[in-house]
Design a protein around this nucleic acid. Structure first.
Lengths: 332, 332
DNA sequence: CTGAAAGCGCTTACAG
DNA sequence: CTGAAAGCGCTTACAG
């Protein structure tokens, strides 16, 4: 591996001149040519690691997400990537597996690598201390949930309203015993969606029935088990709100296993997966603008990088309800 | 940011001693305690970048995949991650978007970062020159396809046999005009699966009909369009083999749009997505052990890292056919 | 525009 | 076990 010194020697210039050639410093045209020829000959490639040691920041952005298999997050990652790439930043995708320790390890890494930025969707119930990172000069944007203590830029979905609208829709269709697959008890998004669900019920004059709320993980298996539980109860629901796409898929599996086809039981699910279109009967979904959310996060990050002292900002994106057959209650 | 010098001063030892404490060198217990206390107080975190400049390798493994939204690859990533983490290596997930230029940029990055290893699932039809990387000392494992020229460790799925078995199954069920959604024309996995498909037909004494083969991308939209095309033809197929899970989903959408429910047209799809269980009628799938493949790749990588001169190895994993209703031909 | 020199924060022989 | 010193490969004021 040729170094800047080898190139300098061959070109007959100082190492600093070689450095300038590769960093856009001002260098006379002839000497630049000399340097480039020498570099070519030696197949010189600047060592990024050495470069990084001098510079303050590495052109890296970490995206720390809790579940790489969740399509909401892969869409989000696409959104982040698009904006980051345009800004000359490389994305490092980190799957924290909803595990606080893994998450902390990645946060630690972002700091130790002196990354330009980090976008973090916190693991459920994790305490999430980002002061280190922020103090170290890494621009940080949180998704869904702001860490306690430290002001920080935030992007999120209007979870509560999304759930409320979906529940109201089921009520309008005439469903009355509406269950909620609510996600992890300690996940803030789950609590918000649950609140929206309850509010819609109360607005309709219905007192929420605790037995109709199932806390689960945010994965398919959780949705399947929870829905199966609900179906086994003495007084099963006549509709269900699945608060994320994987839960929705799981619920659908449970219904089909029990030989029940929506809208016999009404079903609305938060979306995320393109393939939810595939489900028959067609599913009523709460669309979440995941890619846009990722873009927004990346833009906030870049802005924060450029103006470290700007006031903290929150961007909350609204969901859209797409009514479909799975919640189109048949006339009694 | 505290440095090793700050810690050394506070602890009253030499910087090299601090370094040893954080790198498992031999240090007397009391001094170690002193150092750790000082580090704690100063919130010292070793700068990985500076460390990397001295060391030969960075404890990083790149996984370069062509589509982060494809569940086959997210499962694979999980497999890689599990093994890598146990070996103390951090995974850097790189989404090349099936774009040769992005892919090459990531390969370049893996070299420039002096990563310990890189696992690469080549973009369709890309030329893929890894000699640089390998020459630079990074352990490299290819997925599905070995780059030309350089011997290299490889893991893959037995694509040909998987497709052959699936096609033979459709033939057994009595289907005769079997179409193939074949993936990109320049993708080697697509060619192999196509070959398996054709072989099964020939074995059954049927000459493959070129019009029944649709080349597409490996995404859902490709499957949808290709299946729609086939349905519009004068002499439509009576069954179809989808050579990846996203194509299978797309095909299913097209069928349902046309109001055709398998097994009226038989459907077998390569799997990858857990949610394919959701599809009704239940889908016959060619199961691919994606996570196991990822684990195998990571193990090969670690072995290669430890024994750089070991003979190159290939690990080919077999698929499993899970027959189900979507290909259970009704009696005529 | 250009060069000599110091420095980025750590690691690693080398002596002791 | 421990410290002083050189070095990893580049960048960046500082003079000129």
């Amino acid at each position: 591996m040729a170094t800047i010194y080898d190139v300098a020697r061959l070109a007959g210039v100082a190492p600093s001149t070689v450095s300038r050639v590769f960093n856009g410093g001002s260098v006379a045209a002839e000497r630049e040519a000399l340097v480039r020829a020498a570099a070519e000959e030696l197949k010189f490639v600047p060592d990024r690691i050495a470069r990084r040691l001098n510079r303050k920041r590495s052109d890296l952005v970490a995206l720390i997400i809790p579940d790489i298999q969740n399509p909401f997050f892969t869409s989000l990652a696409r959104g982040v990537e698009d904006v980051a790439q345009d800004a000359g930043l490389s994305l490092v995708l980190c799957n924290a597996d909803d595990d606080e320790r893994k998450q902390d390890r990645y946060i630690e890494a972002a700091k130790a690598e002196r990354m330009t930025g980090a976008i973090i969707s916190p693991a459920s119930g994790s305490k999430l201390d980002l002061s280190h990172l922020v103090g170290g000069g890494t621009a940080v944007v949180a998704i869904d949930r702001r860490p306690t203590g430290h002001p920080i830029d935030l992007v999120g979905i209007d979870d509560e309203r999304g759930a409320e609208t979906a529940t109201a829709h089921l009520l309008e269709q005439g469903y009355r015993r509406i269950a909620c697959l609510a996600g992890p008890r300690n996940a803030l998004t789950a609590r918000r969606r649950l609140r929206g669900y309850r509010r819609a019920l109360r607005t309709a004059g219905i007192e929420p029935d605790r037995r109709l709320v199932q806390h689960t993980n945010y994965r398919e298996d959780g949705g399947l088990a929870a829905m199966a539980d609900l179906l086994r109860s003495n007084d099963p629901p006549d509709a269900v709100l699945a608060t994320n796409s994987l839960l929705g898929v799981g619920a659908m599996e449970a219904l089909l296993d029990a030989d029940i086809r929506p809208p016999d039981i009404g079903l609305v699910s938060f979306s995320g997966a393109s393939w939810s279109r595939l489900i028959r009967p067609p599913l009523t979904t709460v669309w979440q603008p995941a890619a846009e959310l990722g873009q927004a996060a990346a833009k906030l990050l870049i802005r924060r990088q450029q103006e470290p002292t700007a006031a903290e900002q929150s961007i909350i994106l609204e969901t859209t309800l797409f009514p479909n057959q799975s919640s189109a209650r048949p006339a009694p």
